[in-house]
Design a protein around this nucleic acid. Structure first.
Length: 113
DNA sequence: ACCGTGACGGCGA
DNA sequence: TTCGCCGCCACGG
């Protein structure tokens, strides 16, 4: 019978992991993959790209391992990315350069939003 | 069942 | 430091 919506266990695992990300902190695609022990950054990115729970899952708290913003709403660049950066700043995440998240903000800021 | 694509990551030049 | 290439896993057609 219909086990989950139209999502696979992998997808749910990714969304669940992202949803666990505390406010004021960010995680990386590779870290999510390791967290769920399923797939790699590629698969995680593909999964989030289809994220049906945009506002439910803080996908904007997920950035690249090199500190890049990554993507937002299926876009790797554009206004969406600027929005992502703005949201992260609002969350309390520190930015080093334009489009670059401070490494200290990656699961280590311990801010309470 | 097979191939191509994709919000990535790490290494080499 | 910046640019480019290959490898990785999961999903849709």
């Amino acid at each position: 019978m219909q086990p989950t919506c139209n999502l696979t266990d992998f997808q749910k695992a990714v969304y669940d992991a992202v949803r666990k990300i505390p406010c004021g902190k960010v995680s990386t695609y590779g870290d999510i993959a390791l967290e769920i022990s399923r797939g790699t950054a590629r698969s995680v990115g593909t999964a989030l790209a289809k994220n049906p729970f945009a506002p439910e899952v803080p996908c904007h708290r997920v950035v690249r391992s090199n500190g890049g913003l990554g993507g937002y709403f299926g876009a790797t660049q554009g206004e969406s990315l600027a929005r992502k950066e703005a949201i992260l700043r609002t969350e309390g995440v520190e930015f080093s350069l334009a489009g670059k998240v401070a490494m200290g903000s990656i699961l280590n800021s311990a801010d309470e939003c």
